[in-house]
Nucleic acid binder design. Structure first.
Lengths: 183, 183
DNA sequence: AGCAACATGTAATGGGTTACATGATTCG
DNA sequence: CGAATCATGTAACCCATTACATGTTGCT
């Protein structure tokens, strides 16, 4: 229920076409919301038909043609309403944790290699976020908007930090574990 | 694609009926995987028809009758296969982070109250996990299985710790923010 | 007998994922 | 002109969520 609001936010920050949105979701928006181009195009159509956004008039609408969108007042109002509304946090669902719990019953074969791979992935992600932090949030940029966006990036950085530390700890445990399969 | 494997893991740890599984998912399994009773019943039917689990023969099958399941060898093999297979981590999707980013554009009205509410929820969750840790993982319990399960619980505890700290930090930022709506 | 709690389901909806389809532009 | 890339979509499937339906057990 939040993809349309993620798109409205992105379009308010900067009017974009579908593919540009996809790239921004892969890049800087990805640390709090992810989406594929199929989701985005479907949602852009829905948002347009609901009167929340409109295509910028400059471009002609054709199949392979770039089509940029901007947010209409109704879209901004809907985003403000949704942002202010109370929402419950979603319960966790993490495959790696489940696999670890399962490996206590069916054996740890194969898991350690993937723990290492995930550690490398999270370390790379962390480094990327820290790069964004240095580039986009120097100490002198300090408007309320910057502070809020930095806060969100900080969450991404802290989460990746958590994962790298937890995965490193998990690997230490694995080295202390006896070699044969349990159960 | 992991709900069936979560159920297989839970059933291997202890054969259960649908409602018992639901309670265990609410309780101790919830810190790495969540599921409702509807999902569980549907999946139990599928797992049974695939030959991964079977109903314990002692009970007669009727509508309001308790029906317990146990895992068959094929189910255990499938769980072992899935656990060992390499899987990519799923990208983050967090509504609160999105709302904060949106509030940088449409104003922060209403968000602060929900930040406080979430902080309280995460603090309660953290306290609950720490209770489980004290009850279920005393220092003398130290089999490989215990270590692996403790590792998973540790992730839940550390994640809740992260959220409480980040939310507290966010609330501090809000107090430093100028009162009027940005943009 | 009536009611609450237990227990197992069905149906409808909506979002996410994967695979595929199609037109336009650019570059060799 | 052919291939790669850019750009916008369509279709099918699966999973999660919500609301609803139905039978059973135990208690008063």
């Amino acid at each position: 229920m939040s993809l349309p609001h993620a798109i409205l936010t992105a379009l308010l920050e900067k009017p974009s076409s579908g593919l540009e949105l996809t790239r921004r979701f892969d890049k800087s928006i990805g640390y709090f919301w992810s989406a594929t181009h199929q989701q985005i195009y479907r949602e852009l159509g829905k948002l347009e038909s609901e009167g929340y956004i409109r295509a910028l008039p400059s471009e002609q609408p054709a199949r392979g043609q770039k089509k940029s969108y901007e947010v209409l007042p109704a879209g901004r109002a809907e985003l403000a309403r949704w942002t202010a509304a109370s929402q419950d946090p979603k319960p966790l669902r993490d495959t790696m944790l489940l696999r670890l719990r399962a490996s206590a019953v069916v054996g740890t074969a194969g898991v350690e290699a993937d723990l290492r791979r995930h550690l490398a992935l999270h370390q790379r992600q962390l480094a990327e976020y820290e790069g964004i932090q240095e580039r986009d949030f120097p100490p002198d940029k300090d408007t309320p908007q910057d502070r809020l966006r930095h806060l969100v990036l900080r969450a991404g950085i802290d989460l990746e930090t958590f994962w790298t530390q937890w995965l490193a700890h998990a690997l230490e445990e694995f080295e202390r574990l006896p070699a044969p399969e349990p159960e």
